[in-house]
Design a binder for these strands. Sequence first.
DNA 1: CCGATATTACAACAGTTGTTATGATCGGTC
DNA 2: GACCGATCATAACAACTGTTGTAATATCGG
Lengths: 216, 216
Amino acid sequence: MVDILSTDRPSTDRFEARRAEIIAAALRVIEREGLQAATVRAIAHEMGCTTGVLSHHFRNKDDLTALAGNEVTRAIARRINAADRSGGPGQQLADVALAFLPDDAESHRAWVVWLHFLAAALRQPEHMQRHSLANDAVRRHIRELLLDFRSEGLLGPDLDPDFEAAYLFALLDGLGVDALISPETYGPHSFVTFVSAHLARLVVTHPPAPGALDGH
Amino acid sequence: MVDILSTDRPSTDRFEARRAEIIAAALRVIEREGLQAATVRAIAHEMGCTTGVLSHHFRNKDDLTALAGNEVTRAIARRINAADRSGGPGQQLADVALAFLPDDAESHRAWVVWLHFLAAALRQPEHMQRHSLANDAVRRHIRELLLDFRSEGLLGPDLDPDFEAAYLFALLDGLGVDALISPETYGPHSFVTFVSAHLARLVVTHPPAPGALDGH
DNA sequence: CCGATATTACAACAGTTGTTATGATCGGTC
DNA sequence: GACCGATCATAACAACTGTTGTAATATCGG
């Protein structure tokens, strides 16, 4: 079926490539000067062209910023999916956790832009839902790895995967945010220590010990 | 000594009270519509007056927003200092942790405004330093409570207080941010579960005994 | 090379922003 | 009553915002 009625836009390869180019320029401006300073004229200046290019490729500025926000969350998700899967369950969990954190310049920039969009989304429920859904996906990913972890007998059978996934995810989110605030305390090499310490406390049985170890 | 040379402003009681009134109005606008929408006219409208009042009590808008940002961090610090100190070391630690989190409408509003200022501070080193120093104070507070905890023999002697304080603080920051994103997953009643689970895992000794925080 | 279409530059627009100057009002003090 | 300073309303200002329309240019199939 040919897209005669789709009514949108030319949608050629060049067109989409140009859109991606504009979005990339917008993200650079946002990362460098903030979301408030990312005006159509500033983005056009970053592109080296005039505002006519933007108005030609996007219906309005909200369209552009919404797609730019989407691109950020997709970039972070791409990093997680590209995490190393060669190691065992515990190593995979650590790799995914570290892939989520801002441990290099590129991911640090992504976190900066993400924080700008997060603040802007506080007054836009539809944008906040995107953040919520993206976080849900990461938590489910962590949950699956935790189940693999438990199937190897390394995880206490009394631990709730949903709870542990939300627990670890909150820690990762906090580490990422604190890395933007206090990079001297939460540096990239400290992430390994935090994550490994957290995972190490999952394999141990806990003091209240509600009749553990006798079931299986 | 009378302050003839010191202050550059009247600094009377009424003057300061009026300034606080304006700052409160500004925080209400920021919480309701975001930092970008907190214009001088919007704040004056929230106050029920004109912009002349603002220009009379503040040198410019940056002055007003900077003091408003200060007020937010001080409000959060006030909540922590007002935490219950009647219980034992473990209970005090849990109380401080829960006092830091957004578990009611007021603290939730404070976190929303805090996130707006945090995003704005990403490109203002002097403002970001204020966030960093405020977090350092909270971490030191947690560290002291952890030392009390250990003096009671409840904390493993192999645990590093600095590391554990940074660890717990990152968890709290993540819980607070995630509560703004996914309130259905990170509700106020879940904070108790997360914090108590985290503290419970401190009293047990761990097999691998992870290395201390980055020794430079 | 031509013509159609996609792409871009440019200018103008109506609103909004922070800042500033000016004048009015009110409450005190010689 | 004359005077002064604090407080505030009002208006104007230039700079900046997103949007839109129009003309110029580039690109590419024929």
